[in-house]
């Protein structure tokens, strides 16, 4: 996160109110020690990874899995664990993050 100057009380909107969805600007990539890597060829487009991801980090366009949002994926591995593809044709594998 870049250190932005935080607003003073006069600039801040009154009443502890926020616009929707501002957490999308918060990057949690640093939480990850592993990352999921998708193989399009092995994917059967079942959408399971999308529904089980706790961090809304499976990118879906027009009802199709298209990859991961690495700004928000925390590398929990649920998607890979739940992906129904066979051991020799995994659509998601977890890889060590380079430190």
């Amino acid at each position: 996160m870049s250190e932005e100057k935080k607003p003073g009380w006069k600039e801040l909107p009154e009443g502890d109110v926020l616009e929707a969805g501002t957490a999308a600007k918060f990057n949690v990539a640093g939480w990850r020690s592993e990352k999921p890597v998708w193989s399009k060829d092995n994917c059967i487009q079942c959408m399971i990874c999308w529904i089980v991801c706790p961090d809304s980090s499976v990118k879906v366009v027009d009802g199709k899995m298209t990859g991961f949002d690495y700004d928000h994926c925390k590398g929990c591995g649920i998607c890979s664990h739940e992906c129904p593809t066979k051991a020799d044709k995994r659509a998601i594998v977890m890889e060590q993050e380079k430190k």
């Binding site: 009380w9 801040l12 009154e14 009443g15 502890d16 109110v17 926020l18």
Partner: peptide, 20 residues
């Protein structure tokens, strides 16, 4: 126009909201 009302303030915002 969805809003979040009653968010959690930590050390960096609580004081400003109280000042308001």
């Amino acid at each position: 126009k969805p809003v979040t009302i009653g968010a959690l303030d930590l050390q960096d915002y609580y004081f400003e909201h109280r000042r308001q």
